[in-house]
Design a protein around this nucleic acid. Structure first.
Length: 432
RNA sequence: UCCAGCGUAGCUCAGUCGGUAGAGCAGGCGGCUGUUAACCGCCGGGUCCCUGGUUCGAGUCCAGGCGCUGGAGCCA
């Protein structure tokens, strides 16, 4: 009798007869032997089928197998004769479950970006994409475990929102029973309400930006984790972000070494992600840029090139805090010690990945908040519920948002965020 | 929205000075080897993105359009 096992479980069954089910990834054939490379989602293994081990019909059928045929394979688990620590299966029976109706579009050779994106549903089966999916999963699980382990409560934010919280130009508008509704850009305002209910809240869900951005760092639909904590100040907020990133990186290093190896990720770069992260003020960052010959001056926003310049000076994420108030959102609290600055922070990932986290302390004074919303020319009536949070026991609070895809791109060292999400939505792509 | 580059076989690409279409891979057939993106031989495979223009002649030059890629702005 053979046991039904996954590829990942094979090393525990050396010497036993097992049955595997999976898909043919590649095949190398000789006159008297076939080498079938089979993947089942848990891993990939080589199945050796010798002419004398199976019936003549079964051996002949192996000869005609094409890529992505789904198979049931029975055989004995052996150590690989040439590769120490690797096992293989000596097949005694091969049964076709599903035969491809045509040539599988994605061969193990090179393909262009557009072609691969058109076949994203099939591209996911490749080793590299499989590795990314698993790292993404581990990062998300680590985020959840991190907050859950610190007394946070997951509070889901709505996807449909009635108003624009940071201007309408970057929002997707939908028809909500005759009224306009927008797909959420951020759950933050709702998390502020949640923080007053549970103290420490976080949400994790999809967010939408209609920006006409076509860069390696932008998606129209991306997943964001947003913690919000009552009675937390900017310094505490930065520590929270720092602890979270260290936790995530440690978890990935502990559980996803094999996937990082598939991605050819230099793990020593991740191993240096330890506390403390450098903290520099925006003003200091401008000074660093000036020294490097960059023309940026106080009041300018820090663009992609500038972020790379700053972050390349460090071997771990760098936190840039206290940006000028004018270039930040209305809900940022002003720095009582610097009339020009806001109590906010951006966390820049190393190796040129730039901003992965944005956050800060929120304005908790009703009068100031009202004035700033007017200055930003936003409709006051839409924010009445938000003002209630200041009317009924206002409290200092802070939080941040981290884009999961940018985090995955950095940890996997991917050239583009489109590979970090199973089915990316971008400026010119809505399918598959 | 703006700037730059690209569009040739199923896929990845080459195609010189404007002269009538080429390779590798994939597919088919055969061979061979405990093979590792296996290898060797043979075969089939083209709306050269579209429209118009220049020319005896356009994959090649020009104009417009479409698509893709990267970047800027904006952001996570």
């Amino acid at each position: 009798m053979s046991t039904l096992v996954s590829v990942a479980e094979l090393p525990a069954h050396v010497g036993e007869s097992v049955t595997l089910r999976g898909w043919l990834y590649n095949k190398r054939s000789g006159k008297n032997v076939h080498f079938l490379e089979v993947r089942d989602g848990s891993g990939t293994t080589q199945v050796v089928v010798g002419a004398s081990d199976v019936s003549a019909e079964a051996f002949a059928e192996c000869d005609g197998l094409t890529q992505e045929t789904s198979l049931s394979i029975t055989g004995t688990v052996h150590a690989h004769p040439k590769r120490p620590g690797v096992v293989e299966v000596h097949g005694t029976g091969v049964t076709v479950i599903g035969r491809p109706s045509g040539e599988f579009p994605i061969s193990p050779k090179e393909h262009g970006t557009d072609f691969l994106m058109d076949h994203r549903h099939l591209w996911l089966r490749s080793k590299r994409q499989h590795a990314i999916l698993r790292v993404r999963h581990t990062i998300i699980k680590a985020v959840r475990d991190f907050f859950d382990g610190r007394g946070f409560t997951l509070v889901d934010a709505p996807i449909f929102t009635p108003n624009a919280c940071e201007g309408t130009s970057t929002l997707f508008e939908t028809d909500y029973h005759g009224d306009p509704a927008f797909l959420t850009q951020s759950g933050q305002l709702y998390m502020e309400a949640a923080a007053a209910a549970v103290g420490k809240a976080y949400c994790f869900g999809p967010t939408f930006r209609a920006e006409k951005s076509k860069t390696r760092r932008h998606l129209a639909e991306f997943w964001m984790v947003e913690p919000e904590v009552a009675f937390l100040d900017l310094a505490g907020d930065m520590e929270l972000a720092e602890d979270m990133l260290v936790f995530i990186v440690e978890r990935v290093l502990a559980e996803r070494r094999a996937e990082l190896a598939v991605l050819e990720r230099d793990v020593s770069k991740l191993e240096s992600v330890k506390k403390p992260f450098p903290r520099i003020t925006y003003e200091e960052a401008i000074g660093v840029l000036a020294k490097a010959g960059n023309p940026a001056k106080y009041g300018d926003d820090i663009g992609g090139d500038e972020e790379t310049l700053i972050s390349s000076a460090y071997d771990r994420p760098v936190m840039v805090h206290r940006y000028p108030r004018e270039i930040k959102a209305f809900y940022m609290k002003g720095d009582p010690d610097d009339p020009r600055a806001a109590l906010c922070v951006d966390v820049l990932a190393p190796e040129g990945y730039g901003e992965i986290i944005g956050g800060g302390q929120r304005e908790d004074d009703l009068e100031i908040l009202t004035r700033k919303i007017q200055e930003h020319r936003l409709p006051l009536e839409a924010f009445q519920w938000y003002f209630d949070l200041r009317r009924y026991g206002s409290f200092p609070h802070a939080g941040f948002g981290m884009g999961i895809e940018r985090c995955v791109a950095w940890i996997c060292k991917l050239p583009h965020v489109r590979e970090t999400i199973p089915f990316p939505r971008m400026l010119n792509r809505l399918s598959p």
